[in-house]
Design a protein around this nucleic acid. Structure first.
Lengths: 227, 227
DNA sequence: CATGAAAAAATTGTAGACAATATGGATACG
DNA sequence: CGTATCCATATTGTCTACAATTTTTTCATG
Protein backbone atom coordinates (compact mmCIF):
# COMPACT_ATOMS: atom_id res chain seq x y z
CA UNK A 1 0.00 0.00 0.00
CA UNK A 2 1.36 3.40 -0.91
CA UNK A 3 1.45 6.03 1.76
CA UNK A 4 -0.20 9.01 0.16
CA UNK A 5 0.77 12.39 1.57
CA UNK A 6 -1.63 13.97 4.02
CA UNK A 7 -4.46 15.71 2.19
CA UNK A 8 -3.77 19.40 1.92
CA UNK A 9 -6.30 20.89 4.29
CA UNK A 10 -7.42 23.62 1.93
CA UNK A 11 -8.70 26.60 3.86
CA UNK A 12 -11.88 25.80 5.71
CA UNK A 13 -12.75 22.55 3.97
CA UNK A 14 -13.20 19.70 6.32
CA UNK A 15 -11.16 16.55 5.89
CA UNK A 16 -14.15 14.40 5.03
CA UNK A 17 -14.90 16.52 2.00
CA UNK A 18 -11.30 16.50 0.83
CA UNK A 19 -11.20 12.75 1.26
CA UNK A 20 -14.45 12.26 -0.61
CA UNK A 21 -13.11 14.29 -3.52
CA UNK A 22 -9.84 12.38 -3.66
CA UNK A 23 -11.53 8.99 -3.52
CA UNK A 24 -14.10 10.08 -6.06
CA UNK A 25 -11.33 11.18 -8.38
CA UNK A 26 -9.53 7.87 -7.98
CA UNK A 27 -12.70 5.95 -8.73
CA UNK A 28 -13.23 8.01 -11.87
CA UNK A 29 -9.64 7.55 -12.99
CA UNK A 30 -9.99 3.82 -12.44
CA UNK A 31 -7.21 3.70 -9.87
CA UNK A 32 -9.75 2.15 -7.55
CA UNK A 33 -11.19 -0.84 -9.36
CA UNK A 34 -14.91 -1.67 -9.33
CA UNK A 35 -15.85 -3.96 -6.49
CA UNK A 36 -12.68 -3.13 -4.60
CA UNK A 37 -13.09 -3.03 -0.86
CA UNK A 38 -12.73 0.38 0.72
CA UNK A 39 -11.52 -0.46 4.20
CA UNK A 40 -11.94 2.35 6.68
CA UNK A 41 -8.78 1.58 8.60
CA UNK A 42 -6.75 1.20 5.42
CA UNK A 43 -7.90 4.54 4.06
CA UNK A 44 -7.44 6.17 7.45
CA UNK A 45 -3.86 5.04 7.79
CA UNK A 46 -3.12 5.85 4.16
CA UNK A 47 -4.14 9.48 4.67
CA UNK A 48 -2.91 9.69 8.25
CA UNK A 49 -6.30 10.56 9.65
CA UNK A 50 -8.65 8.81 12.03
CA UNK A 51 -11.61 6.78 10.89
CA UNK A 52 -14.20 9.46 11.60
CA UNK A 53 -13.56 11.63 8.56
CA UNK A 54 -13.13 8.51 6.42
CA UNK A 55 -16.54 7.23 7.40
CA UNK A 56 -18.15 10.56 6.61
CA UNK A 57 -16.45 10.64 3.23
CA UNK A 58 -17.66 7.12 2.44
CA UNK A 59 -21.23 8.00 3.43
CA UNK A 60 -21.10 10.93 1.07
CA UNK A 61 -19.82 8.81 -1.79
CA UNK A 62 -22.45 6.21 -1.05
CA UNK A 63 -25.15 8.87 -1.27
CA UNK A 64 -23.76 9.84 -4.66
CA UNK A 65 -23.67 6.19 -5.74
CA UNK A 66 -19.95 6.00 -6.30
CA UNK A 67 -19.64 3.29 -3.70
CA UNK A 68 -21.97 0.50 -2.70
CA UNK A 69 -22.49 0.40 0.98
CA UNK A 70 -23.64 -2.51 3.13
CA UNK A 71 -24.18 -1.86 6.84
CA UNK A 72 -21.83 -3.77 9.11
CA UNK A 73 -19.92 -4.96 6.09
CA UNK A 74 -18.45 -1.91 4.50
CA UNK A 75 -18.05 0.05 1.31
CA UNK A 76 -16.96 -1.12 -2.12
CA UNK A 77 -16.32 0.76 -5.30
CA UNK A 78 -19.57 0.69 -7.25
CA UNK A 79 -19.29 -1.26 -10.44
CA UNK A 80 -21.17 0.11 -13.39
CA UNK A 81 -22.27 -2.13 -16.19
CA UNK A 82 -22.73 -1.14 -19.80
CA UNK A 83 -26.46 -1.46 -19.22
CA UNK A 84 -26.17 1.10 -16.44
CA UNK A 85 -24.36 3.34 -18.86
CA UNK A 86 -27.14 2.92 -21.38
CA UNK A 87 -29.66 4.01 -18.78
CA UNK A 88 -27.50 6.97 -17.96
CA UNK A 89 -27.31 7.93 -21.61
CA UNK A 90 -31.05 7.62 -21.98
CA UNK A 91 -31.63 10.11 -19.19
CA UNK A 92 -28.81 12.30 -20.38
CA UNK A 93 -30.44 12.60 -23.77
CA UNK A 94 -33.63 14.06 -22.34
CA UNK A 95 -31.85 16.41 -20.01
CA UNK A 96 -29.38 17.72 -22.54
CA UNK A 97 -32.15 18.30 -25.01
CA UNK A 98 -33.72 20.52 -22.39
CA UNK A 99 -30.38 22.15 -21.66
CA UNK A 100 -29.76 22.94 -25.31
CA UNK A 101 -33.24 24.38 -25.66
CA UNK A 102 -32.86 26.59 -22.60
CA UNK A 103 -29.33 27.58 -23.56
CA UNK A 104 -30.55 28.74 -26.96
CA UNK A 105 -33.15 30.87 -25.21
CA UNK A 106 -31.14 32.26 -22.34
CA UNK A 107 -27.40 32.23 -22.97
CA UNK A 108 -25.79 35.65 -22.75
CA UNK A 109 -23.50 36.93 -25.47
CA UNK A 110 -20.50 36.30 -23.23
CA UNK A 111 -21.51 32.70 -22.68
CA UNK A 112 -22.08 32.17 -26.35
CA UNK A 113 -18.66 33.48 -27.28
CA UNK A 114 -17.11 31.25 -24.65
CA UNK A 115 -18.83 28.25 -26.19
CA UNK A 116 -17.67 29.30 -29.64
CA UNK A 117 -14.09 29.66 -28.46
CA UNK A 118 -14.30 26.21 -26.93
CA UNK A 119 -15.42 24.74 -30.20
CA UNK A 120 -12.69 26.52 -32.13
CA UNK A 121 -10.10 25.08 -29.77
CA UNK A 122 -11.39 21.56 -30.18
CA UNK A 123 -11.44 21.98 -33.90
CA UNK A 124 -7.84 23.08 -34.11
CA UNK A 125 -6.81 20.37 -31.66
CA UNK A 126 -8.44 17.79 -33.80
CA UNK A 127 -6.91 18.95 -37.04
CA UNK A 128 -3.46 18.88 -35.48
CA UNK A 129 -3.58 15.42 -33.93
CA UNK A 130 -6.00 13.28 -35.83
CA UNK A 131 -6.44 10.49 -33.35
CA UNK A 132 -8.35 12.51 -30.80
CA UNK A 133 -10.75 10.56 -28.67
CA UNK A 134 -13.57 13.05 -28.85
CA UNK A 135 -16.07 11.21 -26.75
CA UNK A 136 -16.32 12.09 -23.12
CA UNK A 137 -12.83 13.43 -23.37
CA UNK A 138 -12.35 16.47 -21.16
CA UNK A 139 -12.83 18.62 -24.24
CA UNK A 140 -16.12 17.04 -25.16
CA UNK A 141 -17.45 17.36 -21.63
CA UNK A 142 -16.39 21.01 -21.56
CA UNK A 143 -18.75 21.67 -24.41
CA UNK A 144 -21.68 19.96 -22.76
CA UNK A 145 -20.77 21.43 -19.41
CA UNK A 146 -20.95 24.94 -20.81
CA UNK A 147 -24.36 24.32 -22.32
CA UNK A 148 -25.65 22.89 -19.06
CA UNK A 149 -24.44 26.01 -17.30
CA UNK A 150 -25.96 28.20 -19.98
CA UNK A 151 -29.38 26.67 -19.39
CA UNK A 152 -29.71 28.86 -16.33
CA UNK A 153 -31.34 25.99 -14.46
CA UNK A 154 -29.22 25.00 -11.47
CA UNK A 155 -31.18 21.81 -10.86
CA UNK A 156 -30.53 20.69 -14.40
CA UNK A 157 -26.89 21.69 -14.11
CA UNK A 158 -26.40 19.75 -10.93
CA UNK A 159 -27.91 16.53 -12.23
CA UNK A 160 -25.92 16.66 -15.44
CA UNK A 161 -22.57 17.90 -14.24
CA UNK A 162 -22.43 16.49 -10.74
CA UNK A 163 -24.34 13.25 -11.13
CA UNK A 164 -24.48 11.98 -14.70
CA UNK A 165 -21.17 13.15 -16.18
CA UNK A 166 -19.04 11.83 -13.33
CA UNK A 167 -20.92 8.56 -13.47
CA UNK A 168 -20.34 8.34 -17.20
CA UNK A 169 -16.65 8.94 -16.62
CA UNK A 170 -16.62 6.05 -14.16
CA UNK A 171 -18.31 3.84 -16.74
CA UNK A 172 -15.78 4.86 -19.32
CA UNK A 173 -12.82 4.08 -17.10
CA UNK A 174 -14.34 0.73 -16.17
CA UNK A 175 -14.91 -0.21 -19.82
CA UNK A 176 -11.90 1.23 -21.52
CA UNK A 177 -12.83 -0.18 -24.90
CA UNK A 178 -15.34 2.58 -25.48
CA UNK A 179 -13.86 4.62 -28.27
CA UNK A 180 -14.42 8.17 -29.35
CA UNK A 181 -16.31 9.11 -32.46
CA UNK A 182 -13.91 11.76 -33.67
CA UNK A 183 -14.78 13.99 -36.57
CA UNK A 184 -18.45 13.11 -36.61
CA UNK A 185 -19.04 14.32 -33.06
CA UNK A 186 -17.22 17.52 -33.86
CA UNK A 187 -19.53 18.14 -36.81
CA UNK A 188 -22.52 17.59 -34.57
CA UNK A 189 -21.22 20.08 -32.06
CA UNK A 190 -20.99 22.61 -34.84
CA UNK A 191 -24.69 22.28 -35.63
CA UNK A 192 -25.65 22.59 -31.98
CA UNK A 193 -23.46 25.63 -31.57
CA UNK A 194 -24.97 27.33 -34.61
CA UNK A 195 -28.53 26.72 -33.41
CA UNK A 196 -27.75 28.11 -29.97
CA UNK A 197 -26.07 31.16 -31.44
CA UNK A 198 -29.14 31.89 -33.51
CA UNK A 199 -31.38 31.41 -30.50
CA UNK A 200 -33.19 28.58 -32.28
CA UNK A 201 -34.18 26.53 -29.26
CA UNK A 202 -36.11 23.95 -31.22
CA UNK A 203 -33.23 23.12 -33.53
CA UNK A 204 -30.68 23.20 -30.74
CA UNK A 205 -32.70 20.63 -28.88
CA UNK A 206 -33.08 18.41 -31.94
CA UNK A 207 -29.41 18.52 -32.85
CA UNK A 208 -28.48 17.69 -29.30
CA UNK A 209 -30.76 14.68 -29.27
CA UNK A 210 -29.30 13.40 -32.52
CA UNK A 211 -25.81 13.98 -31.24
CA UNK A 212 -26.37 11.92 -28.13
CA UNK A 213 -28.39 9.30 -29.96
CA UNK A 214 -25.37 8.61 -32.14
CA UNK A 215 -23.26 8.10 -29.06
CA UNK A 216 -25.89 5.84 -27.55
CA UNK A 217 -26.23 3.87 -30.75
CA UNK A 218 -22.53 3.03 -30.80
CA UNK A 219 -22.89 1.98 -27.20
CA UNK A 220 -25.79 -0.30 -28.00
CA UNK A 221 -23.77 -1.94 -30.75
CA UNK A 222 -21.21 -2.68 -28.12
CA UNK A 223 -23.72 -4.33 -25.86
CA UNK A 224 -25.76 -6.32 -28.38
CA UNK A 225 -23.11 -9.00 -28.96
CA UNK A 226 -23.18 -9.89 -25.27
CA UNK A 227 -26.89 -10.49 -25.00
CA UNK B 1 -37.39 20.60 23.03
CA UNK B 2 -39.28 17.34 22.95
CA UNK B 3 -37.45 14.17 23.82
CA UNK B 4 -38.19 11.87 20.93
CA UNK B 5 -38.01 8.16 21.67
CA UNK B 6 -34.84 6.36 20.66
CA UNK B 7 -34.94 5.47 16.97
CA UNK B 8 -36.05 1.91 16.50
CA UNK B 9 -32.87 0.24 15.34
CA UNK B 10 -34.53 -1.70 12.56
CA UNK B 11 -32.63 -4.89 11.81
CA UNK B 12 -29.18 -4.15 10.46
CA UNK B 13 -29.66 -0.51 9.57
CA UNK B 14 -27.12 1.76 11.08
CA UNK B 15 -28.22 4.62 13.27
CA UNK B 16 -26.98 7.26 10.86
CA UNK B 17 -29.31 6.01 8.16
CA UNK B 18 -32.28 5.87 10.49
CA UNK B 19 -31.52 9.38 11.66
CA UNK B 20 -31.15 10.68 8.12
CA UNK B 21 -34.54 9.23 7.23
CA UNK B 22 -36.25 10.71 10.27
CA UNK B 23 -34.75 14.15 9.74
CA UNK B 24 -35.54 14.01 6.04
CA UNK B 25 -39.12 13.15 6.85
CA UNK B 26 -39.38 16.04 9.28
CA UNK B 27 -37.99 18.44 6.73
CA UNK B 28 -40.51 17.24 4.19
CA UNK B 29 -43.39 17.51 6.64
CA UNK B 30 -42.28 21.03 7.50
CA UNK B 31 -41.71 20.20 11.16
CA UNK B 32 -38.19 21.46 10.65
CA UNK B 33 -38.48 24.94 9.23
CA UNK B 34 -36.27 26.19 6.39
CA UNK B 35 -33.13 27.87 7.64
CA UNK B 36 -33.47 26.23 11.04
CA UNK B 37 -30.20 25.32 12.66
CA UNK B 38 -29.51 21.62 13.00
CA UNK B 39 -27.25 21.47 16.00
CA UNK B 40 -25.35 18.22 16.31
CA UNK B 41 -25.47 18.15 20.10
CA UNK B 42 -29.15 19.02 20.16
CA UNK B 43 -30.05 16.24 17.73
CA UNK B 44 -27.75 13.82 19.50
CA UNK B 45 -29.35 14.41 22.88
CA UNK B 46 -32.82 14.35 21.38
CA UNK B 47 -32.30 10.86 19.97
CA UNK B 48 -30.09 9.68 22.82
CA UNK B 49 -27.13 8.93 20.59
CA UNK B 50 -23.67 10.38 20.35
CA UNK B 51 -22.67 12.96 17.78
CA UNK B 52 -20.96 10.51 15.43
CA UNK B 53 -24.07 9.03 13.82
CA UNK B 54 -25.68 12.49 13.78
CA UNK B 55 -22.79 13.91 11.79
CA UNK B 56 -22.97 11.09 9.28
CA UNK B 57 -26.69 11.60 8.88
CA UNK B 58 -26.22 15.31 8.30
CA UNK B 59 -23.50 14.68 5.70
CA UNK B 60 -25.88 12.38 3.87
CA UNK B 61 -28.67 14.94 3.91
CA UNK B 62 -26.27 17.60 2.75
CA UNK B 63 -25.27 15.41 -0.19
CA UNK B 64 -28.94 15.12 -1.07
CA UNK B 65 -29.40 18.88 -0.70
CA UNK B 66 -31.92 18.72 2.08
CA UNK B 67 -29.63 20.69 4.33
CA UNK B 68 -27.14 23.44 3.59
CA UNK B 69 -23.82 22.75 5.15
CA UNK B 70 -21.06 25.18 6.03
CA UNK B 71 -17.81 23.74 7.39
CA UNK B 72 -17.03 24.74 10.95
CA UNK B 73 -20.40 26.41 11.21
CA UNK B 74 -22.95 23.66 10.84
CA UNK B 75 -26.02 22.46 9.03
CA UNK B 76 -29.27 24.27 8.37
CA UNK B 77 -32.49 23.10 6.79
CA UNK B 78 -32.24 24.03 3.12
CA UNK B 79 -34.79 26.60 2.12
CA UNK B 80 -36.33 26.18 -1.29
CA UNK B 81 -37.73 29.14 -3.15
CA UNK B 82 -40.56 29.08 -5.66
CA UNK B 83 -37.94 29.71 -8.33
CA UNK B 84 -36.15 26.57 -7.23
CA UNK B 85 -39.42 24.74 -7.52
CA UNK B 86 -39.90 26.06 -11.03
CA UNK B 87 -36.48 24.72 -11.99
CA UNK B 88 -37.40 21.41 -10.46
CA UNK B 89 -40.61 21.29 -12.44
CA UNK B 90 -38.79 22.14 -15.63
CA UNK B 91 -36.48 19.16 -15.22
CA UNK B 92 -39.30 16.97 -14.03
CA UNK B 93 -41.21 17.66 -17.21
CA UNK B 94 -38.44 16.33 -19.41
CA UNK B 95 -37.81 13.29 -17.29
CA UNK B 96 -41.42 12.30 -16.88
CA UNK B 97 -41.99 12.68 -20.58
CA UNK B 98 -39.24 10.11 -21.00
CA UNK B 99 -40.70 7.96 -18.24
CA UNK B 100 -44.14 7.96 -19.83
CA UNK B 101 -42.67 7.08 -23.20
CA UNK B 102 -40.64 4.20 -21.80
CA UNK B 103 -43.52 3.03 -19.63
CA UNK B 104 -45.78 2.83 -22.67
CA UNK B 105 -43.16 0.70 -24.38
CA UNK B 106 -42.11 -1.54 -21.55
CA UNK B 107 -44.71 -1.83 -18.80
CA UNK B 108 -45.84 -5.36 -18.14
CA UNK B 109 -49.52 -6.29 -17.97
CA UNK B 110 -49.28 -6.54 -14.20
CA UNK B 111 -47.80 -3.07 -13.90
CA UNK B 112 -50.43 -1.64 -16.19
CA UNK B 113 -53.27 -3.12 -14.17
CA UNK B 114 -51.70 -1.76 -11.01
CA UNK B 115 -51.64 1.70 -12.54
CA UNK B 116 -55.24 1.34 -13.63
CA UNK B 117 -56.30 0.29 -10.17
CA UNK B 118 -54.51 3.28 -8.75
CA UNK B 119 -56.37 5.59 -11.04
CA UNK B 120 -59.71 3.98 -10.23
CA UNK B 121 -59.03 4.51 -6.54
CA UNK B 122 -58.20 8.16 -7.00
CA UNK B 123 -61.29 8.61 -9.09
CA UNK B 124 -63.62 7.16 -6.47
CA UNK B 125 -61.83 9.09 -3.73
CA UNK B 126 -62.36 12.29 -5.62
CA UNK B 127 -66.02 11.72 -6.30
CA UNK B 128 -66.65 11.01 -2.63
CA UNK B 129 -64.88 14.00 -1.14
CA UNK B 130 -64.82 16.81 -3.61
CA UNK B 131 -62.19 19.00 -2.03
CA UNK B 132 -59.28 16.72 -2.73
CA UNK B 133 -55.94 18.42 -3.17
CA UNK B 134 -54.84 16.39 -6.15
CA UNK B 135 -51.49 17.96 -6.67
CA UNK B 136 -48.47 16.30 -5.16
CA UNK B 137 -50.78 14.63 -2.75
CA UNK B 138 -49.66 11.11 -1.88
CA UNK B 139 -52.19 9.81 -4.39
CA UNK B 140 -50.91 11.95 -7.21
CA UNK B 141 -47.32 10.97 -6.53
CA UNK B 142 -48.31 7.30 -6.46
CA UNK B 143 -49.41 7.62 -10.04
CA UNK B 144 -46.21 9.25 -11.19
CA UNK B 145 -44.13 6.95 -9.02
CA UNK B 146 -45.63 3.91 -10.71
CA UNK B 147 -44.89 5.27 -14.15
CA UNK B 148 -41.31 6.06 -13.18
CA UNK B 149 -40.93 2.50 -11.98
CA UNK B 150 -42.55 1.19 -15.14
CA UNK B 151 -39.97 2.95 -17.27
CA UNK B 152 -37.54 0.17 -16.44
CA UNK B 153 -34.74 2.70 -16.15
CA UNK B 154 -33.34 2.71 -12.61
CA UNK B 155 -31.36 5.90 -13.17
CA UNK B 156 -34.49 7.70 -14.23
CA UNK B 157 -36.41 6.22 -11.33
CA UNK B 158 -33.83 7.30 -8.82
CA UNK B 159 -33.65 10.89 -10.00
CA UNK B 160 -37.42 11.26 -10.08
CA UNK B 161 -38.46 9.37 -6.98
CA UNK B 162 -35.49 9.90 -4.71
CA UNK B 163 -34.34 13.36 -5.74
CA UNK B 164 -37.03 15.42 -7.43
CA UNK B 165 -40.23 14.23 -5.76
CA UNK B 166 -38.93 14.59 -2.21
CA UNK B 167 -37.58 18.00 -3.08
CA UNK B 168 -40.94 19.01 -4.51
CA UNK B 169 -42.59 17.84 -1.31
CA UNK B 170 -40.24 20.07 0.66
CA UNK B 171 -41.13 22.99 -1.57
CA UNK B 172 -44.77 22.29 -1.09
CA UNK B 173 -44.51 22.18 2.68
CA UNK B 174 -42.48 25.38 2.70
CA UNK B 175 -45.02 27.20 0.54
CA UNK B 176 -48.28 25.84 1.77
CA UNK B 177 -50.37 28.10 -0.43
CA UNK B 178 -49.78 25.87 -3.43
CA UNK B 179 -53.17 24.38 -4.14
CA UNK B 180 -54.19 21.28 -6.00
CA UNK B 181 -55.82 21.30 -9.39
CA UNK B 182 -58.48 18.75 -8.66
CA UNK B 183 -60.65 17.34 -11.41
CA UNK B 184 -58.51 18.66 -14.24
CA UNK B 185 -55.43 16.75 -13.13
CA UNK B 186 -57.52 13.62 -12.79
CA UNK B 187 -58.69 13.98 -16.37
CA UNK B 188 -55.13 14.36 -17.54
CA UNK B 189 -54.12 11.22 -15.72
CA UNK B 190 -56.84 9.39 -17.57
CA UNK B 191 -55.37 10.35 -20.93
CA UNK B 192 -51.89 9.32 -19.89
CA UNK B 193 -53.14 6.03 -18.56
CA UNK B 194 -54.99 5.27 -21.78
CA UNK B 195 -51.96 6.01 -23.94
CA UNK B 196 -49.75 3.79 -21.82
CA UNK B 197 -52.27 0.97 -21.90
CA UNK B 198 -52.33 1.11 -25.67
CA UNK B 199 -48.56 1.18 -25.83
CA UNK B 200 -48.65 4.53 -27.59
CA UNK B 201 -45.38 5.95 -26.35
CA UNK B 202 -45.57 9.12 -28.37
CA UNK B 203 -48.99 10.09 -27.03
CA UNK B 204 -48.12 9.07 -23.49
CA UNK B 205 -45.16 11.38 -23.59
CA UNK B 206 -47.18 14.28 -24.99
CA UNK B 207 -49.98 13.92 -22.47
CA UNK B 208 -47.50 13.79 -19.65
CA UNK B 209 -45.82 16.97 -20.84
CA UNK B 210 -49.15 18.78 -21.04
CA UNK B 211 -50.12 17.48 -17.64
CA UNK B 212 -46.98 18.83 -16.00
CA UNK B 213 -47.03 22.02 -18.01
CA UNK B 214 -50.41 22.82 -16.51
CA UNK B 215 -49.00 22.34 -13.06
CA UNK B 216 -46.00 24.49 -13.90
CA UNK B 217 -48.19 27.18 -15.41
CA UNK B 218 -50.20 27.56 -12.22
CA UNK B 219 -46.92 27.78 -10.38
CA UNK B 220 -45.67 30.52 -12.68
CA UNK B 221 -48.83 32.50 -12.07
CA UNK B 222 -48.03 32.29 -8.41
CA UNK B 223 -44.55 33.70 -8.92
CA UNK B 224 -45.26 36.42 -11.48
CA UNK B 225 -46.89 38.82 -9.00
CA UNK B 226 -43.72 38.86 -6.91
CA UNK B 227 -41.35 39.82 -9.71
C1' DC C 1 -24.54 55.53 22.81
C1' DA C 2 -22.10 53.28 19.35
C1' DT C 3 -18.05 50.66 18.15
C1' DG C 4 -14.52 47.52 18.35
C1' DA C 5 -11.39 44.30 20.64
C1' DA C 6 -10.70 40.58 23.65
C1' DA C 7 -12.15 36.91 26.48
C1' DA C 8 -15.66 33.32 27.44
C1' DA C 9 -18.89 30.04 25.87
C1' DA C 10 -20.61 27.08 22.66
C1' DT C 11 -20.23 24.35 18.55
C1' DT C 12 -17.85 21.77 15.21
C1' DG C 13 -13.68 18.70 13.83
C1' DT C 14 -10.81 14.90 15.00
C1' DA C 15 -8.72 11.25 17.51
C1' DG C 16 -8.59 7.12 20.14
C1' DA C 17 -10.99 3.31 22.77
C1' DC C 18 -14.46 -0.03 23.31
C1' DA C 19 -18.67 -2.79 21.75
C1' DA C 20 -21.10 -5.26 18.13
C1' DT C 21 -21.03 -7.66 14.00
C1' DA C 22 -19.12 -10.12 10.15
C1' DT C 23 -15.35 -12.89 8.00
C1' DG C 24 -12.25 -16.84 7.55
C1' DG C 25 -10.29 -20.95 9.03
C1' DA C 26 -9.89 -25.04 11.87
C1' DT C 27 -12.11 -28.93 13.51
C1' DA C 28 -15.71 -32.38 14.05
C1' DC C 29 -19.17 -35.04 11.85
C1' DG C 30 -22.00 -37.29 8.23
C1' DC D 1 -14.75 -35.70 0.50
C1' DG D 2 -18.23 -32.42 1.53
C1' DT D 3 -20.69 -29.93 5.09
C1' DA D 4 -21.61 -27.72 9.29
C1' DT D 5 -20.27 -25.57 13.61
C1' DC D 6 -17.47 -22.98 16.48
C1' DC D 7 -13.83 -19.93 17.59
C1' DA D 8 -10.19 -16.42 16.52
C1' DT D 9 -9.57 -12.52 13.90
C1' DA D 10 -10.64 -8.45 11.63
C1' DT D 11 -13.81 -4.82 10.46
C1' DT D 12 -17.50 -1.87 11.31
C1' DG D 13 -20.55 0.94 14.68
C1' DT D 14 -20.62 3.86 18.53
C1' DC D 15 -19.14 6.55 22.45
C1' DT D 16 -16.21 9.77 25.13
C1' DA D 17 -12.67 13.09 25.28
C1' DC D 18 -9.99 16.66 23.48
C1' DA D 19 -8.48 20.25 19.84
C1' DA D 20 -9.82 23.87 16.66
C1' DT D 21 -12.95 27.15 15.16
C1' DT D 22 -16.80 30.09 15.47
C1' DT D 23 -20.20 32.71 17.96
C1' DT D 24 -21.53 35.34 21.81
C1' DT D 25 -20.66 38.13 25.62
C1' DT D 26 -18.17 41.48 28.01
C1' DC D 27 -16.01 45.61 28.56
C1' DA D 28 -13.18 49.39 27.49
C1' DT D 29 -12.85 53.44 24.52
C1' DG D 30 -14.02 57.25 21.34
Amino acid sequence: MDTTPVPTQTESQERSEVLANILCEEIIRGQLKPGEKLSETAIASRFQVSRGPVREALRRLSERNFVDFIPNVGARVASTSLTDMLHLMEVRESLEALAAKLAAEKMTAAEKSRLEKLYANHLSMFSRERINPYFQSPEDLDFHYTIAKGSGNPVLFKILCEDLYPKLLVCRSQHQYIKGRGAKALEEHKSILAAINEGDSELASIYMIRHLQSARASLENLIEPFI
